[in-house]
């Protein structure tokens, strides 16, 4: 096991360095001089320009610049936003809970519906339910989620008036964000109606963001279940006369869950990519919208820092999934 852990770390480190290299290079390959861009339309004098070149270290060798960038990153210094003048690190972690809350809800939604759908489809292989569920899953998998979001807004916000269109909570309510999670904070505030408002704001973004993971999980669960159901020990269990519910629910599902859990873990990247679109459409104040806004505002330090933090997050989750997978499945460790 130690060998496996070490080998995984051995591939993690170079990738981490590569990711920092890319985010370091980002601001330098942009068309135009970053200092001129920062000055904006006001322009600046030559003296001020020279001063800033020295301040940002653009006059020193690239290698030295990279080294300083890397040591800065490791100490949590990701630069300052051109627009808000706040550290990128602080901005990221102020907005991150919103994205995390939305992603967790989306994942719960996806697992709660996808897992049973996959199991039901596998148990009715080739029959009506299987076809209906898997066709629906394929539609979900092919869905342009930005359009799906607009459709849901037309139906549920426009025609039925059930759900709000944007934001995390009605402006009526105000309370300090102790945890950053609106669902918990609204409960803690004790204001009546605050929690319901938070839930109503969450429903549509959750469905939109959870749709593709839901489809992937349903498909994966079905194929994993079918594979397991063909195994000898299932036949043994049947021959012993165990009730089908016990066979499917305990013997089969437990082993079918392993690949499904991997898929869930590895869909963090998908969730974050989906969060970019979902948050933009629903004006959800998370990191996805923050990144898109920053790209449009040419707030390059934010884009650079956000890119790095998101990539590192995805890498850490993938590493954890790999390690956990190695823990559950000895066959993987041997490779």
């Amino acid at each position: 096991m130690l060998r496996y852990v070490l080998s995984r770390f051995a591939t993690f480190l170079p990738t981490f360095i590569g990711v920092t290299l890319i985010s370091f290079a980002f601001i330098r390959v942009l068309p135009g001089d970053p200092i001129i861009v920062m000055a904006g339309e006001r322009g600046m004098s030559q003296e001020r320009y020279d001063e800033l070149v020295i301040q940002f270290g653009f006059d020193r060798p690239v290698l030295v610049q990279y080294w300083e960038y890397l040591t800065g990153v490791l100490q949590g210094d990701l630069g300052t936003s051109y627009v808000t003048k706040r550290p990128v690190w602080d901005e990221f972690f102020a907005l991150f809970p919103a994205t995390l809350e939305l992603s967790i809800c989306a994942m719960i939604f996806a697992v709660a519906l996808g897992l049973p759908a996959g199991v039901i489809a596998a148990m009715n292989r080739g029959k009506f339910y299987d076809r209906a569920l898997m066709s629906t899953a394929l539609i979900g998998y092919s869905m342009p989620i930005f359009w799906w979001a607009l459709l849901l807004i037309i139906v549920f916000s426009g025609n039925l008036g059930w759900t709000p269109v944007s934001g995390r909570i009605d402006l009526l309510y105000y309370f300090p964000d102790t945890t950053g999670f609106m669902l918990i904070d609204s409960l803690l505030s004790g204001q009546s109606g605050a929690f319901t408002s938070a839930v109503r704001h969450l429903i549509l973004p959750t469905i939109v963001l959870g749709t593709i993971p839901l489809a992937v999980i349903a498909r994966q669960t079905r194929s994993a279940m079918l594979e397991v159901l063909g195994e000898d020990y299932i036949r043994t269990a049947r021959a012993k006369g165990l009730p089908p519910g016990r066979i499917n629910g305990i013997h089969a599902l437990r082993n079918a869950l392993i690949p499904v859990i991997t898929v869930i873990g590895l869909s963090v990247g998908t969730l974050l990519a989906g969060a970019i679109l979902t948050e933009t459409i629903f004006s959800w104040p998370g990191i996805g919208k923050w990144m898109v806004d920053s790209i449009f505002r040419r707030d390059y330090p934010v884009v650079q820092g956000g890119l790095l933090l998101i990539a590192v997050m995805v890498m850490v989750v993938n590493l954890t999934v790999d390690l956990l997978y190695g823990l559950i499945n000895p066959k993987i460790r041997k490779r």
Binding site: T11, T15, G18, V19, I22, F26, V29, L30, P31, G269, T270, L272, A273, G274, I276, L277, M291, V292, I295, V303, L307, I310, A311, V312, V314, M315, N318
Partner: peptide, 19 residues
């Protein structure tokens, strides 16, 4: 390739287009 895969695809595409 791992480095490219570490970025969510749409985000990387967005940033590349920004460049």
């Amino acid at each position: 390739m791992d480095i490219i895969l570490a970025f969510p695809s749409l985000l990387l595409a967005l940033v590349l287009v920004a460049i």
